[in-house]
């Protein structure tokens, strides 16, 4: 038997939609274990037909970037618009990209 806790562990939920190519983060919820997290995700996040596949990940397993390091991490790319592929003329024959 486990020691009494007041909250179930937190899980991050990823859902792949009917025509989605990849799983997308949709939110988080509590559950006693991974299987229960999948069931809860089914109930909370797919009740309007949103998905065909569910991933659950313990929130504690996620390593996040430091919000205070925003400057060092992201600002250097602000001045490098040439990294967007918008400076090329696309021949008509190529069609929609």
């Amino acid at each position: 038997m486990t020691k009494s806790r007041t909250e179930w562990p937190l899980w991050e939920i990823f859902i792949r939609g009917q025509h989605g190519m990849s799983h997308r983060h949709v939110g988080s919820l509590h559950a006693q274990d991974a299987d229960a997290a999948v069931r809860n995700a089914r109930d909370v996040y797919t009740r309007r037909n949103e998905g065909v596949s569910i991933w659950v990940v313990p929130s504690a397993s996620i390593t996040a970037s430091d919000p205070d390091a925003k400057g060092a991490l992201y600002e250097p790319s602000h001045s490098k618009v040439y990294r967007h592929p918008t400076f090329f003329d696309i021949p008509d024959d190529v069609g929609h990209m």
Partner: peptide, 22 residues
């Protein structure tokens, strides 16, 4: 099928849970 899966696993989780839930 889903109802049974959910309720049976909940019975396991609570029965084999804390002293109070057991």
């Amino acid at each position: 099928t889903y109802h049974y899966e959910k309720s049976s696993e909940m019975v396991v989780a609570l029965g084999d849970g804390t002293e109070e839930s057991h």
